[in-house]
Simulated assay, not measured.
Amino acid sequence: MRLGEALRKLRERAGISQREAAYRLRYNYQKLSRIENGQLPEYHGLRAMLDLYGVLVSEEAPFIDMWERASEKGWWHPYRVADHGYLSLEHDATRLSTFSLGYIPGLLQIESYMRALFAGWQVQRSRKWIENQIAVRTRRQERLVADEGLEYHAIIAEAAFPLADREQLLHINDMGTRPNVRVQVLPFAVGLNDGYTGSFHLLDFAYLADMTVLYVEHPAGASHVEDSEQVKASKVLFKHLSKLALAPNESADWIGRLAAER
């Protein structure tokens, strides 16, 4: 995605339209569009684009470096988990906003909650599959406690809490004390609202300041949405849900009282 954005800016700087560039590169228009949205080009195709866009050979190094980095497999590949492209997005994101309707979000789950969640799935999985999932989810959580941690804002509906035990609840509150983590509870008391349409994630990236990706999971897989109007509507909804939800300190008190009862 970083490379695609850089190539788009080079093309625009050269004053070449996407259709014209595709014609001169002997690409179809859709292929160039996919490259500018994150599909990795072949090496010689990259060099052809740099030449077309007026990049001198002495200036190519940063773009070649980005291509090489994009060609590397992510840390999650050895685990062989089906992530629908989400892990790479989360790995590159600097801010993640999550609304969770029915379960504790993955970045806040403890191992026992993960195991209970996987055990309750309709399709029974092998022990190796479950261990890989837990390992990946635990590795993802390291970003919340890193020196330059992921900026994380989770709004969790009250419906997600009944099956969370005391240890899980206390862990949520512990993570909520971190400066980069913001946790809010959306209580039943606010009544029916737009959040009941389902859970979703919004991911922001430092190198794509004007781009947010909406990620939504569904029974058949998942969807990535980059359309600006659809993303904007989801950002407005998240902001609305944040206003409806308890403030972070009120949420921590609410979760603490619930933990005390268990």
Rank of each mutant, 00 (worst) to 15 (best):
F205K: 02
D92Q: 11
G221E: 03
K31S: 08
R34I: 04
A48R: 02
L246T: 05
A119H: 13
D65G: 02
Q184P: 11
R19G: 02
A135M: 05
A61S: 13
H91W: 05
D210S: 11
N37W: 00
V145K: 11
S223Y: 00
L258A: 12
D147Q: 15
F63C: 09
L186R: 04
E217T: 10
I255D: 06
E217A: 13
I134N: 07
R166H: 06
V183W: 12
E142F: 06
R137K: 14
S126W: 08
R2Y: 02
L52W: 07
A22N: 11
S71Q: 15
N28L: 00
H224T: 10
A116K: 08
E5V: 07
W121F: 09
S228C: 00
V136A: 15
R69H: 13
Q168A: 10
S234G: 05
V236Q: 13
A116S: 07
L163P: 01
L40T: 12
Y103M: 15
R257S: 13
Y23I: 04
K73P: 06
R95C: 08
L150H: 07
Y53F: 15
T98G: 00
Y79D: 02
E59I: 04
Q39T: 14
F161L: 15
L52T: 06
Y29L: 01
N173H: 04
H153T: 00
E90I: 01
Q109Y: 13
R127S: 12
L203D: 05
E158H: 10
V213C: 11
L170K: 09
W76H: 14
Q230C: 04
R26Y: 09
E60F: 00
R80S: 14
A154H: 10
E158K: 12
L237D: 00
R8N: 13
L40Y: 06
A21N: 04
V231D: 03
A22W: 03
E59G: 10
T212G: 11
G149S: 12
R34C: 01
N37F: 00
Y113W: 02
I155K: 01
F118Y: 14
R47M: 12
L208A: 14
Y53V: 01
G45A: 05
L246C: 06
K239M: 09
Y86W: 14
S71K: 14
Q109S: 05
T212E: 10
K243E: 15
V183H: 07
G195F: 12
M175R: 06
R143S: 14
A247S: 11
H240A: 09
F161S: 03
R13C: 01
E72C: 11
L107P: 11
A259T: 00
R26N: 06
L117N: 03
S17W: 12
E20M: 03
S126V: 08
A160R: 10
Q109V: 06
R13F: 01
R69K: 15
S97C: 02
G85K: 02
I156R: 02
H218S: 04
G195D: 09
R140P: 00
V185G: 00
R19N: 08
L89V: 08
F200A: 08
L163I: 05
A189P: 01
G106K: 09
V216A: 14
V136C: 13
